[in-house]
């Protein structure tokens, strides 16, 4: 079985928004200096899920693929250290500022170049823009089924059973292979790369493919091909006021608090 996992590098989502700046001209986010980029949390869970499938189904091969500018190979190395077997980086000036359709096109082209695959895993959304469309459009582009927000996958022959997260539990759906599955955070804590994993990952070569390498259609990628446009970008300001409720007894304080909560329509 061959699993392809799409991973994305994003600015650390744990950093409070107030630390970011926005360039009003280009409408781009500027992360605070020194902020290390990380693997998107959902994508990391996709890698985790792939590793778990591999543990249960020996002989499975995992390929991690990422796209982006700069040192994105770090996220591929992270996936390799976790247990992926191969990694590919997609890097080209022409790829930058593509929207979900553009990205899906690039990924589809790269996956077609890879050739054989049984399962494609993506994070349910990237933890930076939270758009959550690329996985579905990718399936559409490749002409295969998609199952979204998975928390578990069980392989049964040429089919998979996917546990999908619902608001009040989960449902199990069956899908034929090959297909795309987007993975949710309910998968649980991704493994820490083992020392041996890191050492082996460091020794692996990660090829970088350009638009020409994968034969991407220039008309379908980049800002010009975008189906959507950012009209304004801002950091929401959040006002917090702090009020300390004082009273002589705890009971009295509780009553005052309850009244206050009702007054402010919190409850």
């Amino acid at each position: 079985m061959h699993i392809i996992v799409c991973v994305k590098q994003i600015p650390d989502p744990e950093v409070p928004p107030a630390k970011f700046k926005i360039d009003p001209d280009t409408k781009k986010v500027m992360p605070p200096p020194g902020l290390p980029p990380v693997i998107s949390v959902f994508d990391e869970r996709a890698v985790e899920l792939a590793c778990r499938i591999k543990e249960k189904n020996p002989g499975t091969k995992i390929t991690a693929i990422t796209m982006g500018p700069g040192k994105v190979s770090d996220v591929v190395k992270h996936a390799l250290a976790m247990g992926a077997d191969e990694g590919i980086v997609l890097q080209d000036k022409a790829f930058e500022d593509s929207d979900s359709f553009g990205n899906a096109h690039i990924l589809a082209k790269a996956i077609q170049k890879i050739g054989s695959y049984d399962l494609i895993l993506c994070g349910r959304q990237a933890a930076d823009w939270d758009i959550g469309q690329t996985g579905s459009i990718l399936a559409e582009t490749l002409g295969i089924p998609v199952v979204t927000v998975a928390k578990d996958i069980e392989v049964a022959g040429d089919k998979i059973k996917v546990s999908r997260v619902m608001e009040d539990g989960y449902e199990v759906v069956e899908a034929p292979l090959p297909c795309v599955v987007t993975v949710s955070n309910e998968v649980g804590l991704p493994r820490l790369p083992s020392g041996m994993g890191i050492i082996q990952a460091a020794r692996k070569q990660v090829p970088a493919w350009t638009a020409a390498d994968i034969g991407a259609d220039p008309a379908k990628i980049g800002p010009a091909a975008a189906h959507s446009e950012i009209t304004s970008l801002f950091i929401p300001t959040r006002d917090t006021t702090c009020e300390v409720i004082t009273a002589d007894t705890l009971a009295e304080a509780a009553v005052k608090l309850a009244l206050k909560l009702r007054e402010t329509k919190v409850v």
């Binding site: 650390d12 744990e14 290390p36 990380v38 693997i39 804590l189 493994r191 820490l192 790369p193 083992s194 020392g195 041996m196």
Partner: peptide, 19 residues
């Protein structure tokens, strides 16, 4: 070698790795 550790240690180490 075994990737076995208390969950909070794992979180701490991941944090060191990424942040």
């Amino acid at each position: 070698m075994q990737s076995k550790m208390p969950e909070n240690i794992q979180l701490m180490l991941r944090n060191m790795q990424t942040r």
